[in-house]
Nucleic acid binder design. Structure first.
Lengths: 118, 118
DNA sequence: TAGATAAGAAACCTTTTGGTTTCATAATGT
DNA sequence: ACATTATGAAACCAAAAGGTTTCTTATCTA
C-alpha cells in the first residue's frame, strides 16, 4: 500500500517518531519505549510512515531498524512552494495593476509600456 | 476550537481548496461548485481550515469569503527545517568522526586519544 | 535444546473523519 | 412583502484511525 506523505505527517506521534529516528536509526522496541502507548500502536505508526516513504524498516537479525527518509519531505516543501507561487502571483498582478493606474500621463513617445515580467 | 496545521493539510480536498483560493478569495458556494461533493461537505473542510488558521472567513453581506492565510504554512516549513537540521547533524557527526580516524599520526604530545564512542 | 526476546498478525473496540440529507436563518432582489 | 439565495446547524451514517490484548513466528543466547 502507498500513502500520502501529508497524511503521514498528520499525526503528532508520527512526527515525534521522525524526530527520534532522524538522529539515529532505532529498532521498533526502542522507538516504542519512548512513548506510553503500546509497541503495537507504535508499530502501526511505523507501518504508516513506511507506506508513505518517510521511513524504511531494515531487518537485521531479529530486529528491524527504522531509518528516516527525509528526501520524502521534499514533496511537502514542494507543495508549499508551489502554493506560495500562486499566492504571490496574486500580488504581482495587483502590483502591476497599481503601477498601471498610477502611471503618469506621458508624451506619446512610446505607445505602450509592456512586457515587464516579474 | 483550534487545530493542528498538519492535520489541516492532510486531506487532498483541503489542499485543493487552498490552491483554489490562493489565487483569489471566493465565497463558500463558489468553492463548493468546483467539487463534486456537497456544499455542506466543503463547508466542513473550510471550517477545519479556518480552525487551523490556514483560511479566514470574511462575512460580506450574505456571503462569506474564504481568504487564504499562507503565513500559517510557515509552521510546516519550520518543522521540516528543524527536522532537516537534526538529520544533517547526524552526518556532521559522522564527518567529524571520519576526519578524526583519518587524522595522520602525530608526535605524542598527548598520551592517548580517547573518548571516541561507537 | 529451551527459554527469552523482537516483531508481525489478528480480532476487537472507540473516536474521528468525511460524507449525506434536512431544516433554520439571515440578507437580497423584485 | 415574498421568493430566492448563501450559509450555518443538526442528525445521521460508513469507513478510517488509533488504540488495545492476544497469539505466532523468528531469532538469539545460555
Amino acid at each position: 500500500m502507498t500513502r500520502d506523505v501529508f497524511q503521514g505527517l498528520a499525526d503528532p506521534t508520527r512526527r515525534e517518531i521522525l524526530n527520534m529516528i532522524a538522529h539515529k536509526s532505532l529498532n521498533v522496541n526502542s522507538v516504542a519505549s519512548n512513548f506510553d502507548v503500546s509497541r503495537t500502536a507504535i508499530y502501526k505508526h511505523l507501518k504508516i510512515l513506511s507506506e508513505c516513504g518517510l521511513v524504511v524498516l531494515q531487518q537485521q537479525g531479529r530486529e528491524r531498524y527504522c531509518e528516516a527518509r527525509p528526501e520524502k519531505l521534499n514533496e511537502v516543501t514542494d507543495w508549499v512552494e508551489q502554493y506560495r507561487q500562486i499566492w504571490t502571483k496574486r500580488f504581482d498582478a495587483l502590483d502591476e495593476y497599481l503601477k498601471k493606474i498610477q502611471e503618469p500621463k506621458k508624451t506619446n513617445l512610446k505607445p505602450k509600456k509592456h512586457g515587464r515580467k516579474k
